[in-house]
């Protein structure tokens, strides 16, 4: 992550810690804007195809496992909670508690991934692939791209965990933790829309 070593970095003298904190957070919000529009293309495709083929969506979404989807939603929302609690912990100067919450968050991300793995294998078992129909192509591309973001978020949080264990963060310096948290919440945010759009079509 940018900024972790900024303070001792030779070219970093121009940035005082307050500016650095604001810059990094603002930068992450811009990146979130980018991510929203990346998924935006898929949401646009979804809207158009759902309006075009309402029967296909109504029929084929029954193949998806609503229970597993709901479970994964709960897992991801819980992981967002643990992430948020982690940020408060370090703001209050409790790095050990932060490490615990980060670990929980990563494990919940992993649980999400495992769950998704079973879901995908069940689909493949029934000979459902991307390309089987427009609906399943949407299902696989949307959840697949989201899954990639879960992995990226987990990698980011693992880095944060290592840095926390090395004692890098305190109530005086936790910018990277908070900014990584923003990214993790984005992953949750996108799933909040994916779940009803794919699994809960009446």
């Amino acid at each position: 992550m940018e900024g972790v070593e900024k303070i001792e970095h030779v070219h970093g003298h121009h940035v005082d810690p307050v500016v650095e904190y604001q810059s990094l957070k603002f930068g992450m919000w811009l990146f979130i804007a980018t991510e929203l529009l990346l998924f935006g293309g898929l949401f646009a495709a979804y809207t158009i195809f759902r309006a075009k083929f309402p029967e296909m969506f109504a029929e084929q979404h029954l193949e998806l496992n609503k229970t597993l989807g709901a479970l994964n939603t709960a897992v991801l929302i819980l992981s967002s909670l643990t992430m948020a609690l982690g940020v408060t912990s370090i703001q209050r100067g409790k790095p050990k508690r932060l490490a615990l919450f980060l670990l929980l968050t990563i494990l919940l991300g992993l649980a999400f991934g495992v769950n998704k793995y079973f879901e995908y294998s069940a689909k493949f078992h029934h000979h459902i692939y991307p390309g089987t129909s427009i609906f399943f192509s949407l299902y696989f591309t949307m959840t697949g791209l989201h899954m990639l973001h879960v992995f990226a978020g987990m990698a980011l949080l693992t880095t944060m965990l290592v840095l926390t264990l090395r004692g890098r963060f305190s109530d005086k310096y936790y910018t990277p933790v908070e900014v990584s948290g923003l990214y993790w919440h984005l992953v949750d945010l996108i799933w909040i829309y994916l779940f009803p759009l794919l699994y809960l079509i009446a």
Partner: peptide, 30 residues
């Protein structure tokens, strides 16, 4: 999630602009 978990509630105006503008563009695209 955005307001509380992501602290958007406590962010300055320009962050709000860049958080909401993509949604406008998405509406436009669709």
């Amino acid at each position: 999630v955005a307001l509380y978990f992501m602290h958007l509630k406590y962010e300055d105006k320009i962050t709000w602009v860049f958080a909401l503008y993509p949604l406008g563009l998405l509406a436009l695209l669709i």
